[in-house]
Amino acid sequence: MRTHSIRTAFTVLAAAALAAVTGTASATPAASHPAKQRQTPPVLVDCLWHPDVRPAEFILACGDGNSRLVSLHWSHWNQNSAVARGVNMVNDCKPYCAAGKFHAYPVVVALDHPQPWKKKPQLQHYTRMTLIYTHDHPDGYAQKVSYPLWD
C-alpha cells in the first residue's frame, strides 16, 4: 500500500511539474514579445475640459457661444490628424451680440499637432484646429483660420 501511495504521489508531482513547465514555456513567448499596445487616438478637449472623439458639435467661443461648429461628419481621426466637414454657426453681433443673428458657413475642420494633455498626460489631445471656409466666410475672418486649442 505504501508503494502505491508513493507511486501515486510521484505521478501527481510529475504531472504538476510537467504542467508548470508547459505553462511557463507557453507563457514565455508572450512575455518576451508583448502584444502591441493599442494606442488611444488623440481627443478634442471642449470648453468644460471634457475629452471627446469625433464630436458632432464643438463650441469655439466658450465665453458666449457666438461661434460653434455643428453637423460635424468626420472622414478620419487618427494618431496625427482628424478631418471633418460641418457648419460654423457665427453670430454677426449686429447691432450687438444679444440681438445678432447666427449665420451658417460650411467649413472643413482639420485637427493636428497632438500633444500630451496636461490634465491627463496619458491622453494625447489635438492642439490646433484649422477651419477652411468652403464658400463664404464671416466678416473679419480669412478663408483659412487656425486656432490653438486649450490644454
Rank of each mutant, 00 (worst) to 15 (best):
M1I: 03
T3D: 13
H4P: 03
S5K: 15
A9H: 06
F10C: 12
F10Q: 09
V12N: 09
L13R: 02
A14K: 01
A16V: 04
A17I: 04
A17E: 06
A17S: 12
A19Y: 07
A20E: 05
A20S: 10
G23C: 08
G23K: 02
G23Y: 02
T24Q: 03
S26M: 10
A27C: 07
A27G: 09
T28R: 11
T28Q: 09
P29R: 00
A30M: 04
S32A: 14
P34V: 06
P34E: 12
Q39L: 15
T40P: 00
P41D: 13
P41H: 08
P41T: 08
P42N: 08
P42F: 00
P42V: 06
V43S: 14
D46C: 00
W49N: 13
H50I: 05
P51C: 03
E57G: 03
F58W: 11
F58I: 05
I59C: 04
I59S: 11
A61T: 07
A61W: 12
C62R: 00
G63T: 14
D64Y: 07
G65A: 04
G65F: 04
S67G: 01
R68F: 10
R68W: 07
S71Y: 14
S71F: 09
L72M: 04
W74G: 09
W77Q: 00
W77P: 00
Q79G: 06
S81H: 08
S81N: 07
S81D: 14
A84M: 03
A84Q: 03
N88S: 10
N88I: 07
M89H: 03
N91E: 04
D92H: 03
C93I: 05
K94C: 01
Y96G: 00
C97F: 07
C97W: 06
A98F: 13
G100V: 04
K101I: 09
A104C: 00
Y105C: 05
Y105K: 05
P106E: 11
P106A: 05
V107Q: 12
V108R: 11
A110H: 15
D112C: 02
Q115S: 11
P116R: 07
W117R: 05
K119T: 13
K120Y: 14
Q122D: 14
Q124E: 12
Q124C: 00
R128V: 03
L131Y: 05
L131V: 01
I132D: 12
Y133R: 02
Y133N: 06
H135G: 08
D136F: 01
H137W: 11
H137G: 02
P138D: 04
G140D: 12
G140M: 08
G140C: 04
Q143N: 07
S146Q: 08
Y147N: 12
P148H: 06
L149F: 01
W150L: 15
W150V: 06
D151T: 07
